[in-house]
């Protein structure tokens, strides 16, 4: 039963925010809609209700979001800005193989999107069979899996694992 709560909450919040109204009319329709959509789609979205409602995991998600939006983005931007502003353009572009360890699809996709959204690195493809991302890296400091994992993925995957794994 608890499994159905996260999708219902998501639908209710999206409905209310999009409608821009908290009238009784919208609260009733939003609630009915939330229950209906959750009943239809939860089986594709949530496999573990306990995980989905864990406050510790939610706190970890907030922590990750704050870290990502400030520290990670700042670091990545400053590196790219330094490359742009330097006289000799010290780029070393390469598409590198980055092995990931996560099993949960949300961790994998979250890590991939975190990599893509920071400037300097873009996930161009992934191979779920071999558990690797193919990442275009503007300044490849090494090509071996340990280096690429440490430099590109480690912090993202560790942060998101505390939320989803």
């Amino acid at each position: 039963m608890r499994r159905y709560v996260p999708v219902a909450l998501l639908v209710f919040v999206v409905y209310i925010v999009f409608s821009g109204s908290v009238s009784p009319y919208d609260i009733v329709i939003g609630a009915v809609l939330a229950v209906a959509v959750s009943a239809l789609t939860t089986r594709f979205l949530v496999s573990d209700g306990g995980k989905a409602l864990s406050l510790r995991r939610l706190a970890n998600l907030v922590k990750y979001a704050l870290y990502y939006l400030t520290v990670a983005e700042f670091k990545a931007h400053s590196l790219v800005i330094r490359i742009i502003l330097s006289r000799d353009m010290p780029v070393r572009p390469a598409i590198v193989r980055v092995p990931y360890r996560a099993k949960n699809p949300y961790t994998i996709v979250g890590s991939a999107n975190s990599i893509t959204n920071t400037p300097g690195t873009v996930v161009v493809d992934l191979d779920t069979g071999r558990s690797v991302f193919y990442v275009h890296w503007i300044r490849a400091v090494g090509l071996d899996p340990e280096t690429t994992y440490r430099e590109i993925l480690k912090v993202f995957e560790e942060g998101l694992s505390k939320v989803f794994e």
């Binding site: 999708v7 998501l10 639908v11 209710f12 999206v14 409905y15 329709i29 959509v37 789609t41």
Partner: peptide, 12 residues
């Protein structure tokens, strides 16, 4: 993840 949101917006 987008599909439930899409349904919410359509109904709204």
């Amino acid at each position: 993840l987008l599909i439930p949101m899409n349904i919410a917006i359509a109904v709204s």
